[in-house]
Structures are given as C-alpha cells and as structure tokens.
Design a protein around this nucleic acid. Structure first.
Lengths: 213, 213, 213, 213
DNA sequence: CATGAATGAGGATTCATTCAT
DNA sequence: AATGAATGAATCCTCATTCAT
C-alpha cells in the first residue's frame, strides 16, 4: 500500500498487544483532536503506556498516523462491499450501496479529512488518499458501465466523471450530516440520495417503480 | 457575522495599507500552508512588516484568519450571484449557476477546508461556516421550490435536503477537481454536473432537449 | 532630590498641562497595577494623549516613575508636619503625629512599596527612599530626644533606633490595615498606636492621664 | 494551603533531585531579582537543567513561586516556635520570641515582600500570605492574653490589634535592618524591641528589673 | 507639539523526540 | 520491552521605544 514504514516485525505477543493499543489510541486521539492537536502524550495515556514506549513501535507521530489511516482505509474498503450477488433490482442495489457508502464515510469522516490535510504535504499520504478514492470511483464507474451495457442507464454519460460526481454527493452529504450537524435520519437520506442518483443516471426501470414511494 | 474582534477603526491611509497587506499576505500563507502551519513571521515577511506590527492590527493568528475567512466568504457570496433576470430556460439558468458555483468553490477550496478545520474548535468560525453554507443551500432550495411551483420539477422532493445533496455534489467536485488533481475541463464538468442535477430533480422540459448533446 | 533627569524646562502652558496629566495618569496607573504591570499605553490613554507624546516629556517609564515617586514623597513630607506650636500635652501631640503618620502612609502605601522595589535596582530610587525614611526617622528621633531632655521619657533609649522601631510600627500597620484588609477604624487604631508608643518610651506624665480611657 | 497546583507525584529519585534543584534555584533567583525580573532560563541554568525540563515539574513561573513561597512559609513557621516550656520569666520569653521572630523575617524578608506583591493579583498567594500573617498574629495575641489573665499585662489592650502592631514593629524592623541597610547588631536590636514591647503592654514584673540595663 | 505606525529584543511555553536506566 | 526524565528547536506574543509625518 502506501510506503509508510513502520516497526512491526518480530514482535512478541505482548509487543503486538501494545502496538495495537497504540494504534487504537491514536485513532481515537486523531479523531477527537485532529492531526496537529493530537498529542503523543495523550495517545500514550490512552494506551496505558509510557512516553518512551511509543518510539519502540513508531518512528514518529506521522508514522502512527500512517498506520491509523491505513487501517481506516482498509475498513472502508471492506465495509462498502455490496455482496456480488446482491438481491433485487438495480435500484435496490444502488440503494444498498449508498447506504453502505454513507455509513462508511460517516464513520470515518474526520479521519479522511485529516488524510486529505496530510496528503497536501506528504506524498505517501497522497498516494493512500488517491488509492482510497480510486477504489470507490472505480466501483461506481463499473456499476454505471454495467447498467449502460444493459441499456438501463444513459449511455452518453462518462462513467468515471459521473461516478466521481455522484459519489461525491454521498461523501459530501456524510460530512455535512455528521460533522456539521445537518439534521436528517439515515433512512430519509439514503432514500433521497438514491432517488437523485438513479434519476441522474437515467435509470430506466425505475421511473415508475420508485414513484410509489 | 462572526464574532471575531479586529482592530480596524480610525486608521490612517498608511495604516490601512499595512493592514490590507497583512490580510493579503495572510490569505496567501494560509492557502499555501494551512492554518496550523502558517507562521505569523511568514505573514509579516510577505507583507514586508516587522513582527510587532502584526499585533498593531490583529490580536492573534486566529483573528487574522477570521478576517481572511470573512473576506473569502464575502467574495463567494458576490461571485455566485446569478443575475435575477438571467436569460433563457431553466436548464440554462441551472447551468449558469453551477458554473459560478463551481468557480467560487474552486477558487477558495483550500480556505474553506481550513475554515471547516477551524470551525471544529472555534465557535465564531463555526458560525461563519454555517452562514456560508446556508446561503448556498437556501439559494438552491429556493430555486428548486420555484421550479416545483411551476410544475417543472418533482414536487415530492424535499427542497432543502435536495439542495444540500446536489450542492454538495458541485462543491465536492470542485475539491476533487482542483485539490486532488482530477483531470477535467471546466466545460465538460459544468455540462455533466448540470445534466445530473437537472435529471435528478426531474426537470421536465429538459428530458429531451439536452439528450441530444 | 533624586538624580532622575526629566524633560521639564521651557514648556509652554499647553506643554505643562500635558506633562501634569501624564504624571497624574502615571500615579494612578502605578498605584493600580504596580510598576511592572503598568503600561505606558494605559498611562497615555488616561492622560488623553498619544503614544509618542509620552516621550516628549519623559525619557522612559522609569523617569516617569521617578517623577511620580518624587511627588508622593513631597506630599508625604508636607502632610506629616504637626504644627510646631501644636497644642496640648506630649501625649496629645504624639497622637496627632501618629494620626498624620498613619494617614500619610495609608494614602501612599502601594507607591512606597513600589519605590522599595525600584530601590533594589536603581540607586536613584534608593536615595529617594532613604531620604523619605530619614525625614520620618529624624522627626521621630528629635521628638523623643526632646522628651528625654525634659525628663518625660526614658533617657536610656537610643532615639534613632527607637524612632525607627516605633515609626515602623505605625508604617507597617498602615500597610496591614489598608493593603491586607485588617479591619479597624482609624480612631481605635490611632489610640492604640499612641498608647503603645507612649508606654514604650516611658512617657511619664501619661501613666495616669490615659489610664482613664 | 494555597491552591497552586504542582506536578510532584510519583517521581523517581532522580526526578525528586531535579525538582528540588529547581526549587532551590528558583528561591535564589526570586530572592535576587524579584518575581517579575526572575527568568525561567536563569532558574534552569542555576539548576543545571534545560529549558524544557522546567515544565516537566512546574506549569509556570507562578507555580514555581507557589512552591518556593510555601517552603518559605513553612520554614518561618518552624523557625519561630519558642519551646513551650521556655525557661525564665515573661520578659525573657518575650525576648526569645522576638529574637526568633526577627531572624525568621530577616532571613526571608525579600521573599515575603514578593509574596505580598504576588498576593495583589493572585488569590492563592493572598491566602498563603494571610495564613502566614495569621499564625504570627495569633501567637502574639495568645501570649498577650495569657499575660493579661495572669495580671501581668494591661487587661484593656485588644490582644489581636496589639499583636498586629507590635509584631509589625518587629517585622518592619527586620526589613529596614536588612533590606535597607540600617546599621545595628542583633543583640541591641532584640533588646530594644523587647524593652519597647514589654513596656507597651505594661508588663508589670519588669518595670524595674530591666530598667537597670 | 502631537501623532500613531513601526520596530525588535526578549520571554514564556509547547511538545516531538532521545536516551540512560 | 518499558520507563520517564531530559532535551531544545520552534513559536506566539508583549511592550518600551523610535521616527517619519
């Protein structure tokens, strides 16, 4: 993945536990205070280890963040996979994907923002960030292409750009919803996002189906 | 607006010049390095004044940022106004609005991100940020409501939530486009954003017109 | 007096007014905040003049303090003089002197403390302080010597040392009373101070007189 | 005691050594330069530690001063205790008390002055100062009351106010003697202070005894 | 005389990182 | 593997003083 180097080889069981505790603590600290404001002291206190111990496992604050960010990105990958043989019609599947998409971003909104900050200065983070985005963009683009091939979506739409825009709509809403406190319940949000998404790509079989809502 | 206090009354011409130079320099510095990483010394060097002079005009880095953010928000308001008697059909008007919207956010993307960061800790900035968002959200919601009243858009859509989502799509694309380096030319982007937007709200008179593009 | 140099010659009437305003403002500022904490800005604001003007009249903050301290010392000299042909018996005269002494120190307690602070570093201030003390010490010592010569007080007491100690009692009480908030009314305080003072020096004609209180 | 918080728990032997060195250095620095003029860098240099180490043990200059002041007050308490079964007649015991009193104040004169300065702004220091004063005042007042009960001192004197005044005489003399350089040897000073004190309270058994000195 | 903008030395404080134990 | 004391570069901010107008 990203080329951030961490000290993680040849650890005893105890060492692995300590290391894991630090990553967990780091994730909390970054999420609560942001990258700059998060203190190594705080991380160590949360993990229940002393100052010096931190440097047994990580070279620097940055390398801890790399680890945390990698874990988050991994989770988001996993969490957003709609079972390949997902049931139902295209609309329902888009809805399911949007629900997972929204949840994945909502759960990690602040850390992804941080990763974006970090990406501005560190190329390693930039790569990680682009990789994260690319996975979601490709997934969206492929889904659209498949629908286009099946004659269910407007074939003139550029799949990649469309996926970026509509994916961005979901991602951005996750941010507004959670970080900025816009009031909405998940169900309503997912339904509306899906309706807009489906209409935007001209999902044919849907025009009547979801009119019943 | 935001409740950040600045020293700005009763200045001589020279004072106003210096102050303006500091704001300009601050905007550059923040835009280049981000809020935390921006150094007051750097700002002073850019403005060609000494250390202490900064504090003649501002209480702190924070208060300078407040000034810069206020200016940016003001510019974005102004820049995004579509002439009330904008020509043409609804689709063309949405397109014009999207173009301005995209440009406004693209021009200030980094500073708005910074404002979001700052909003996490400082209530004054949070207010400024919410105010900024609200203006765009309201504008979008009112546009949609008007179309709904004219029978040109799906009347079942919640105007506010829809405006947030579709506005977010544009805003987020501005970020991906400029900050993350996604390749696209403005024309293509605006056209696609508009097509998606129009379809999403079920803009009637359009379904055939622009299908020929 | 002290060898603090001030710019005070050849001033116009307007100049003298400004200068006086600065001294007055300085006295207030020093009394309220202490020497270190008093700000030249604050002094200028109180005096209603601009920053730069201060340096037309004084070389430095220190020289302003010199002026203020000199004025205070002068006032204390004046205020503490018991009319040479003060009426009544020795006891009554000691009482009158104590009342004035107490008032003089109470009125200027904080500024004298400041002068003591300043005296630690600046010889000019040290001289002024010693001069101030000396005046009071001498006055007390001479009073005692006169009583001793008249056979009214214990002739074995060293006049200077005794005056320092008993004068210190009054001076210190002024401090405790006003600066530290010890509750007591002036009348009671003066009566007790005088009784203690009179007894301490073995004032003969008094042993019965004041027993009637 | 005072509500100044210090970092002092769970230290290793090395930590305790460093901390103690800082307190010692701080006491010296404060005593030499005064509170405001004392530099943290100077304290660190004296203690032989680096800049940052200071903040491992203290939050601020103020908290170091709190520690130093607390230590001084503690020492003064201890140093001024006259053995309960002190030998001899009342006069001799007053003399012993005065000697200890004078020494205690003389040894810490400057730091107590500093505490008074600090008490003007910080309530924690004000409390510490008042506590210090109160101990001495009470001790004096109780001594006097005992003598009054035994019929050895003027029963009409208010014990507290009298103790404040006569205690102030000793305290103030310590200041004049040491800080202002009034020449006197301890023996003479203590004898005179005691004579004045004893006469002032009308100590009966003494009037003739010590008149022969 | 008055103004107020500009200066910059100086000081307190933070915190990631190192290292002896 | 863990500890926690020590480090010092880096940064913000203050305020007495100077100077051009």
């Amino acid at each position: 993945m990203a080329d951030v180097i961490v000290k993680s080889e040849g650890l005893t069981a105890r060492g692995r536990r300590t290391r894991a505790a630090l990553v967990r603590a780091g994730r909390e600290a970054f999420d609560e205070h942001g990258y700059e404001a998060a203190r190594i002291d705080d991380v160590c206190a949360r993990a229940g280890v002393s100052h010096g111990t931190f440097y047994t496992y990580f070279d620097s604050k940055e390398s801890l963040f790399g680890e945390v960010a990698g874990a988050v990105v991994g989770e988001m990958f996993t969490a957003s996979i709609v079972g390949p043989a997902a049931p139902g019609d295209p609309y329902t599947r888009i809805e399911a994907a949007n629900r997972l998409y929204l949840r994945a971003w909502a759960a990690n909104s602040r850390l992804v923002r941080m990763l974006e900050q970090a990406a501005l200065t560190e190329d390693g983070f930039r790569d990680l960030l682009l990789e994260l985005r690319e996975v979601f963009v490709r997934r969206g683009a492929e889904g659209l292409r498949r629908l286009q091939e099946q004659g269910l979506a407007d074939p003139t739409l550029d799949p990649r750009l469309t996926a970026i825009m509509l994916g961005g709509m979901v991602e951005h809403f996750a941010h507004v919803w959670l970080d900025l406190g816009e009031r909405a319940d998940e169900r309503t949000a997912v339904e509306l996002l899906t309706k807009l998404w489906a209409r935007a790509i001209g999902l044919t079989s849907v025009s009547t189906t979801e009119a019943s809502q």
